[in-house]
């Protein structure tokens, strides 16, 4: 108990406090003390752009991932509960959702990079250049595509338990009252699953918003998303006193993620009422 508590204080509580307090602290070169200067730096054009980009990327990949992931989860949920299909899909999804990171960047580099398999195949066989309108792999559409590769699997993992919670008796009850498939989904299944679906979408958003590794390995120039901005603030030696701007950026991220996770917890409680 005591060792565990001490451990958490050193490696979880102190780092959190460092971020929160540091975000409001002046750098030692400026004499220390409390300041709002770092928070004001969040209003910079560049930083605002990064937040807007991060949020659009997270929202786009969360929505696409949620829709396709829910379909995949439905396909798996209707299969045999202990069957091979379910085992293979859930294990593969667990790998892609959690393990991804750098390896996914290289996977897409090999697929639709400038010398990637698909790029070359299309150029050879169909004389089509997927990058005729510029290299979009490192921009919003490209990053969204790469992110869906770990968002769809994550959706399956968080949404499958909700689908498993649907009881066949409800469907039978609807049928015995003369309800059609469409009516069942619109009046029973849909409303039951809606909170779980929305909650999962929020979780996906938070996941994409916090992701760092894939973008770090893929994007070598510039810092379009907030985590990469933090990397710049941490590693740049050109601008002294930037360190606390990094903490302000980190605090900004925590605020966004905390709001999203709070909404997620609210929806989760609603879901648990029926599908727990």
């Amino acid at each position: 108990m005591v060792p565990f508590g001490a451990y958490l204080v050193v490696f979880l509580i102190i780092p959190t406090l460092v971020v929160v307090i540091g975000a409001f602290g002046a750098s030692p070169e400026d004499g220390g003390g409390a300041t709002l200067e770092n928070i004001r730096a969040l209003g910079d054009r560049q930083v605002l752009d990064a937040f807007v980009f991060s949020i659009s990327l997270s929202a786009a990949s969360a929505i696409i991932g949620a829709v396709l992931g829910a379909l995949l989860a439905y396909a798996v949920a209707t299969a045999k509960p202990d069957g091979m299909l379910r085992r293979v899909v859930t294990s593969a999804c667990a790998v892609l959702a959690q393990f991804g990171g750098v390896t996914l960047a290289f996977a897409f580099y090999a697929t639709i990079g400038l010398t990637g398999f698909v790029t070359i195949y299309l150029a050879d066989h169909f004389d089509a250049n997927i990058y005729s309108g510029g290299v979009w792999l490192f921009e919003l559409p490209g990053l969204t595509l790469v992110y869906t590769y770990f968002q769809i699997p994550l959706m399956l993992i968080v949404f499958l338990p909700a689908l498993d919670g649907i009881r066949p008796q409800w469907r039978e009850a609807a049928e015995s009252l003369g309800g059609s498939t469409w009516q069942y989904w619109r009046l029973v299944g849909g409303p039951l699953l809606a909170p779980a679906f929305l909650g999962s979408t929020l979780l996906l958003f938070a996941n994409a918003f916090s992701a760092y590794a894939t973008a770090a390995a893929l994007v070598s120039q510039g810092a379009p998303i907030v985590p990469l901005q933090i990397r710049n603030a941490l590693t740049s030696e050109v601008l002294l006193g930037q360190e606390n701007v990094g903490k302000a950026l980190a605090l900004g991220m925590v605020v966004v993620v905390a709001v999203v996770m709070w909404l997620y917890a609210l929806l989760q409680r609603r879901t648990a009422r029926w599908l727990g």
């Binding site: 959190t16 985590p227 941490l234 903490k247 925590v254 905390a258």
Partner: peptide, 12 residues
């Protein structure tokens, strides 16, 4: 709820 990148900032 704490992204790894944020944890790094505090862990440094």
């Amino acid at each position: 709820t704490i992204p790894a990148i944020v944890l790094v900032v505090g862990l440094a």
